[in-house]
C-alpha cells in the first residue's frame, strides 16, 4: 500500500471545480442567451436566472413565460447531470479544466423527454433552481428539478426528465 496522497490546497481544489463549471456553462450559447448562472457550494449547484424583460410571457400580469421557466429547468437538469457525471474526474484531476476552457467540452447528455408542472405564476424577478439526479446509469439517467423565486418552500415549477448518457471513450 502506498501512502495516501496529501489533500490538494483548498484554492487549487476550488480553482479546478470553478474552472470546470465555468467551461461547462459558458460553452453553451443558449445558457448565455438566457442569462443563466450557476452558484456552487461544494458539489451542490444552484442555478440562477436573473430577471430580464425578454423572459416575460404575459406582460399584463406580468409573468415569466412558461417556456422560459421550462428552459431554465432543462438547463438546470442538463448541467446538474453533467456535473454529477464529471465530478469524480474533476476531483481526481483526470479532467483537465484547461482543456475544458479551451473548448474540449465533454459530450453532453441528450434529453429523451421533459415534463414540467407549473405550480405558480413566475413573477418578474430572479428565479432559482436545483436539480437532483435520481438515477444515473451507464445509458440512461432520471433527473428531477425544482424552481422557486422568493420563497424556497413555494416552488413555481417542477420538472422530471430522462436523458441518454453520452457514450464513453471505450
Amino acid at each position: 500500500m502506498s501512502a495516501r496522497r496529501p489533500p490538494d490546497p483548498v484554492q487549487v481544489v476550488k480553482q479546478r471545480r470553478d474552472a470546470a463549471l465555468r467551461a461547462l456553462v459558458q460553452g453553451v450559447p443558449y445558457i448565455q442567451f438566457m442569462g443563466i448562472e450557476f452558484d456552487r457550494r461544494g458539489d451542490e449547484l444552484t442555478a440562477v436566472m436573473p430577471f430580464d424583460e425578454k423572459l416575460i410571457g404575459n406582460p399584463l400580469l406580468p409573468a415569466l413565460h412558461g417556456g422560459a421557466t421550462a428552459a431554465f429547468l432543462e438547463v438546470t437538469s442538463i448541467i446538474g447531470l453533467s456535473w454529477a457525471m464529471l465530478w469524480d474526474d474533476i476531483e481526481s484531476g483526470t479532467l483537465d479544466p484547461e482543456a475544458l476552457v479551451a473548448g474540449n467540452l465533454p459530450r453532453l447528455p441528450k434529453t429523451i423527454d421533459f415534463t414540467v408542472d407549473y405550480l405558480r405564476s413566475g413573477l418578474p424577478r430572479d428565479a432559482y433552481a436545483r436539480a437532483q439526479v435520481t438515477r444515473s446509469g451507464r445509458r440512461y439517467a432520471s433527473v428531477r428539478a425544482e424552481a422557486w423565486q422568493d420563497n424556497r418552500a413555494r416552488p413555481i415549477a417542477q420538472a422530471t426528465a430522462h436523458f441518454v448518457m453520452p457514450r464513453g471513450d471505450g
Binding site: 443558449y30 413565460h65 422560459a68 421550462a70
Partner: peptide
Amino acid sequence: VIHGGAVSALMDT
C-alpha cells in the same frame, strides 16, 4: 443543435 429549452418555449407558445 438547438437547445431543448428553446424547443420547449416554442411548443409552449
